Simulated scan of single mutants.
Amino acid sequence: MNSQPVQVPQGDLRASTPKLAFTVDQACYALGLGRTTVYELLATGRIKGIKIGNRRLILADGLRTFLANIEEDP
């Protein structure tokens, strides 16, 4: 049996690690859009997402690309 103590990282790792994916609700909050709009953007492929089981995740890079490609209204 190993008798050495386990080294636990100090601080909250979640605070220093950028998110790679968001839930639909988190993406709605980040974009300031409603759930229906975000699901439409996913369905049309304007935002990239993945599905794991019943859970839909929206990739952070997909959100950045979407925002970079939006044309401004006159």
Rank of each mutant, 00 (worst) to 15 (best):
E72V: 04
L13W: 03
R35F: 10
A60H: 12
G45A: 08
P5Q: 10
R46Q: 08
I52D: 03
Y29Q: 15
R14C: 13
Q26K: 04
R46W: 09
V24F: 00
P9Q: 09
N2C: 00
N2H: 10
L67G: 01
T17P: 04
E71K: 12
N54R: 14
K51M: 11
R46S: 02
R35P: 01
A30K: 02
L41R: 00
G32M: 14
K48C: 07
A27T: 11
N54S: 12
L63E: 05
I58A: 03
A68L: 13
R64F: 07
P5T: 02
L33M: 15
D73W: 07
V38E: 05
I52M: 03
S3Q: 12
K48A: 02
D25V: 13
P9R: 09
A68D: 13
A43R: 15
E72R: 13
V38W: 05
Y39E: 00
L41I: 08
E72M: 01
Y29D: 14
G49L: 00
V38M: 03
D61C: 07
R64T: 02
C28A: 12
S16T: 15
D73I: 08
P18Q: 04
T23R: 00
P5C: 10
R56C: 08
T17N: 13
T17F: 02
A43S: 11
E71N: 11
K19N: 13
R64Q: 11
L33P: 01
I52S: 08
F66D: 09
Y29W: 11
A60G: 06
